[in-house]
Design a protein around this nucleic acid. Structure first.
Lengths: 318, 318
DNA sequence: CGGGGGATTGACCTCGGTCAAGTACGGTGG
DNA sequence: CCACCGTACTTGACCGAGGTCAATCCCCCG
């Protein structure tokens, strides 16, 4: 059932953002795990060695790879198909518990906020509330509820939005697997959520109580540092988006969005598929689906070719 | 020349945002200094006693009060007209140096980021670069320059903006006396400014080298805490503004802006004067002056009466 | 008094929102 | 296998808020 693979040093083994229906067990050599966080920073997360499993998150929770894995030196892996893993997990309750624990631990340890900590320090991190399933369209939390957790998204997608008095929904942000959210909420003493958040597809999240997170922040200076950094970056990105919406036309905004999407997911610009429904993209960009629909047609003028669901970016620059 | 005033406990002696051409010397009693920082938080800054001078910043630098002063118990003050102070300062170089030093020290110590520190801790803060004059329309810094300082605005106003490829200027933010800016810039390791910043009128600023600020942050946890808090708040405000621009019409946006302005400057809603030129307001709100001009006319529908430069807000709520 | 910058007003146009109809696609049930 | 339905998306026609351009007004200042 298991199939050996020999990987050259430096080769990409798993790519963040790609779907995946298999896991690898490391037979020999070491694998570097890294991720591009939503702010666009590439962050090194961990180094895994023989006996360890990689890629379990996408398989167990049914989503996409939420980090990239690269061979550090030559490596031998055995590839285990997703079905096989599911069978084993179903057979043994202990195995299931083990996998869930593994996923939860890794999700917490691998968030970019904690990237500056040593392996021992990471081991002492709080565990959080194991992968919790929020079915499609269910709410993680609503506006004006008290803030209790920091969330780590393991699989699926999540939408933040505000509801206006007229019942209109304004999408503020979309999150993809690997993202951490409610960071800024966590800094406001005894605050309340300013947005509602809903699962777009079935989403698994780890929930880390705010108190525990603050404890960690107090203990490790680098965590507070990274949080500051990430909030500051978010501010700049917000400014940038404001500017775009004020000055650009719909096709230009869409083009810019696709370029950033491609970059932040690590997609191949020479052809990738949109990971969201188009209506979601419209919401994210603050436009109507009709406007978006018309914008697709004009993308050629901005160096992007769309063929059905396939998107190709011709000229690549920031 | 000096004129004694007897102030009842709790009375407002100086109000943030008001113009002022006199200073007070405290003869007896104590005065509480506080300010509303740009995020809308009321922050207690200091308690001053007999012999100390208040209100010197607006007078010496020719601007508006950048903090409020309230009598803490019954107080006797002697009021010194601005002209008198200017005469004394002109007469004596030492007096001039002393006033400038006083202003610089107070500006640094009184920023809300440092509000959690004790008097002794505040005394040990770095002094920063004394009040620097940036004449009307001169640049404090430009986009893509390396970030070297945190700025404290002592008098005048300052405009942050981006320039697009087409030469268009997008105003991101306006700052008023007492504001601290480049906070988020300061968190990005060796970053570059993402906006240009220009003095609207003659502006005096204190410049605190980033390195020194980071040093302070490392020493005092509360400073990092407050910075986090303020960045998180800014994020929420950005989101809110995004939402507004997406869903509201020009008069609604203007109305909401005026209400916030009134609140954050501490103006009297029953009649105040706009502290900026209208064209600046237009820039700030991301609209053309013509659109703004038309919006004024429709403000009555939203409970705001405009009579020349006089603005009255009828119904007050968040 | 003339000049210049800011503000206002009017005429016009464009982008994108709105409404309505139509298409493509997948799933379900007979 | 096809009829039916619901969802997502597309297309067309229309409209209105706000941008653009030009003329004018207002007020301060030299």
């Amino acid at each position: 059932m298991e199939q050996k693979e020999f990987i050259q040093s430096g080769a990409l083994v798993l790519q963040q953002g790609m779907p995946g229906d298999y896991v690898y067990k490391i037979e020999s050599g070491t694998i570097d795990i890294s991720m591009r966080d939503p702010d666009g920073e590439e962050v090194f997360l961990a180094e895994l060695g023989p006996g360890e499993i990689i890629g379990e998150m996408a398989v167990m929770l049914g989503g996409r790879r939420c980090a990239s894995a690269r061979a550090h030196g030559d490596v031998v892996l055995s590839r285990i198909p997703g079905q096989e893993l599911h069978k084993r997990v179903k057979r043994s309750g202990a195995m299931h518990a083990y996998m869930m624990r593994l996923i939860a631990d890794r999700a917490i340890r691998n968030i970019s906020l904690f990237a500056g900590l040593s392996a021992e320090e990471k081991a002492s991190l709080p565990k959080g509330e194991g992968p919790v399933l929020y079915p499609k369209k269910s709410y993680l939390f609503r506006e004006n509820e008290p803030i209790a957790h920091l969330y780590v998204l393991c699989s699926g997608h999540v939408q933040h939005f505000n509801t206006t008095d007229t019942g209109q929904e304004i999408t503020v942000e979309l999150h993809k697997p690997g993202d951490v959210f409610c960071k800024s909420a966590a800094c406001l003493h005894d605050g309340f959520f300013s947005t509602s958040t809903r699962a777009i597809d079935d989403a698994y999240v780890i929930k880390l109580p705010i108190g525990q997170f603050k404890e960690v922040m107090r203990r490790y200076e680098t965590v507070a540092d990274r949080l500051l950094f990430s909030l500051a970056r978010r501010n700049m990105i917000n400014q940038y988006e404001m500017e775009q919406r004020a000055t650009m036309t719909a096709p230009q905004i869409l083009s810019s969005f696709l370029r950033r999407l491609c970059y932040s997911y690590g997609f191949d610009p020479h052809g990738f598929t949109l990971p969201y429904k188009k209506s979601l993209v419209a919401a994210r960009l603050g436009m109507e689906t009709e406007t978006l629909s018309r914008a697709w047609a004009k993308l050629a003028e901005y160096g992007i070719i769309v063929d059905g669901t396939r998107i190709t970016i011709l000229d690549e620059e920031a």
